[in-house]
Structures are given as C-alpha cells and as structure tokens.
C-alpha cells in the first residue's frame, strides 16, 4: 500500500498531465458532436463582449470598403430593379404588380440584421460569431447571408451572441444548384483556400460549364432558392468517378465580412417535422 502511495506521489505530475489531456480531448470531441457547449465558445457573454468591443474599434478602419461595397451593390440593384420594372411594364399593365411581387417574396421569411464580431479562416473548422442571440430571435439552424451571397448556418445561440458555421468548415454541407440548368449537388469545403469551395455529387449528365453561377437550391428549408454562392472555376471527376466535383469561387469574401443577415423561413418547422416523420 505504501509503495503504491509512494508511486502515486512520485509520478503525480504524470497523472495530472494525463487528466488535463483527457479533459481537453473530451471538450474537443464533445464540441464536434454536441451543440450544448455554449460556455466554451465565443457565444459566451464575456468572450462575445470582448469581441464586440474590439469589433467596434476595428469597424472604423473598414468603413470605407464597406461603403464602397454597399454603393456598388446599391447601384447594381437599382439598375436591376429598373430593368425588371421595365420588363414587367411591357408584359402587364398592372401598376401594383411590382409591389405585390415584392411582398410575396419577403413575407415568407423573417430577417434579422447582425454584425460579425469574430471570424477565423485559418483552421480546418472555422466559425463566425455574430452579435445577435436568442433574445433577438436567433435560433439554431437558421440561414445566414451577406450582401454578396451565402455565408453559413447558425450552430449555437446564447442570449446575446451566436456562433455560425460558415462554408469554410468541415461540417458545412449545403444544397446548391447550377442557376442555368437546375442540376444540384452539395456545397462543402476542402480545407485549402478560403476563397474556394467544392460542390460534390453533381450528376454526370448535368449540363454545366466554367463561369456558371451556383446558387442555393432551396431544398433544405434553411435558405430560399437562388441565394448566390459563387462561380464555377473548375470541373473534375469525383474520386469514385460517378459524379462531378465542381470547384466554386465564392462570392462572399470571408476575410472582410462585417454585416450579415440571418433569415428564417416561416413554417420551416412544419416542413422539417413532416420530413422527419416521413423518414421514420
């Protein structure tokens, strides 16, 4: 017994070391599988607060670029609206039609504006933190988009902050399609560059060419149809040779993402419930 005690005392640093390593790995694997660990992420109040403060300071340095982006987007949207208005006027003589279409397009979705307060690009599993949480109406699995296009999906929400899984994460898997031909596949990331993502499982017979635009398919109830994702940069065969692997240059520049919009489809839960019941 004494020998055992002596042994334990002599090598106590080894036991402490092994214990702490075990705790670390439990945290690591638990976070990968389980969405409950809000305390250990940047959606906890203290960490979120520090990032928000830092974001307010650095936000000023990016105002110029943000303004330029917004102006560019404004101009292109205005031109687009004008063109559509013209086209609509040609086809119908109904002056209230535009307003009706706008209302129909937006009434299906709840939208919440938010600011990105923390963002990483260098890991294999990157996350964004935004400054809106449960009290602002944000829930897990809501879609996140920016002015340029798709951003990601809300992973965890605390009272005032939320963590978002962007496309640049090994867990990200979003249903997408080719805008021109409607063939669809799944958008994921290969862990190499923050500017590119991969669309997998694109059928062999799909009509697709370089320069095509990829948009969300709208099958998942998280995103509406047609949120821009990126442009086809390269097409190759998948490893098993049964489908295409499409390399996409993303529209969203994650390195300077500031303003985002969290969206939720009304009646999403009903659709999910129905789908789950059908699976059982």
């Amino acid at each position: 017994m004494r020998n055992l005690l002596n042994f334990l005392l002599k090598y106590n640093h080894w036991f402490l070391f092994i214990l702490l390593e075990v705790i670390s790995f439990v945290l690591l694997f638990r976070f990968n599988n389980y969405q409950g660990s809000v305390f250990f992420t940047s959606s906890n109040a203290l960490v979120g607060g520090v990032y928000e403060l830092a974001g307010q300071v650095t936000g000023y340095f990016h105002l110029k670029e943000t303004n330029e982006d917004l102006m560019q987007e404004n101009v292109s949207l205005r031109l687009q609206t004008e063109a559509l208005r013209e086209a609509l006027r040609e086809y119908t003589n109904d002056t209230t039609a535009i307003e009706r279409i706008r209302q129909v397009a937006l009434q299906e979705y709840d939208m919440y504006k938010a600011k990105v307060i923390n963002n990483s690009l260098i890991y294999s599993d990157n996350y964004l933190t935004i400054n809106k949480g449960r009290e602002d109406g944000i829930r897990e699995d809501m879609g996140v988009i920016s002015g340029n296009g798709l951003v990601g999906i809300v992973y965890q929400a605390s009272d005032h902050y939320s963590v978002v899984i962007p496309v640049l994460n090994s867990k990200s898997n979003i249903s997408c399609k080719v805008k021109r031909s409607e063939y669809f596949g799944f958008l994921s990331w290969d862990g190499i560059s923050s500017e590119y993502a991969i669309v997998r499982d694109m059928p062999r017979h799909s009509v697709i060419s370089l320069g095509d635009t990829i948009v969300t398919s709208g099958h998942s109830a998280v995103f509406p149809t047609g949120v821009p994702v990126g442009i086809v940069e390269d097409i190759s065969d998948s490893n098993d040779g049964l489908s295409y692997r499409v390399k996409v240059k993303l529209f969203t520049d994650y390195a300077r993402l500031k303003d985002v919009c969290v969206i939720e489809k009304k009646g999403r839960h009903e659709q999910e419930e129905l789908e789950n019941r059908a699976r059982e």
């Binding site: 402490l16 945290l27 660990s37 250990f40 990032y51 933190t129």
Partner: peptide
C-alpha cells in the same frame, strides 16, 4: 501544466476550438 491548460482553454473559448489549444 495547470497554467498551460487554463491558458489554452481561455484561448480556445475565443477561437471556438474547445480543447485544441488546451491539449
């Protein structure tokens, strides 16, 4: 080891990488 673990854990909380820096 204790200082290392807690320092790693705090950095992990900021980076959303629970356990990686700590380990």
């Amino acid at each position: 080891v204790l200082w290392g673990f807690f320092l790693g854990l705090v950095v992990d909380m900021f980076c959303n990488t629970p356990g990686m820096n700590a380990a």
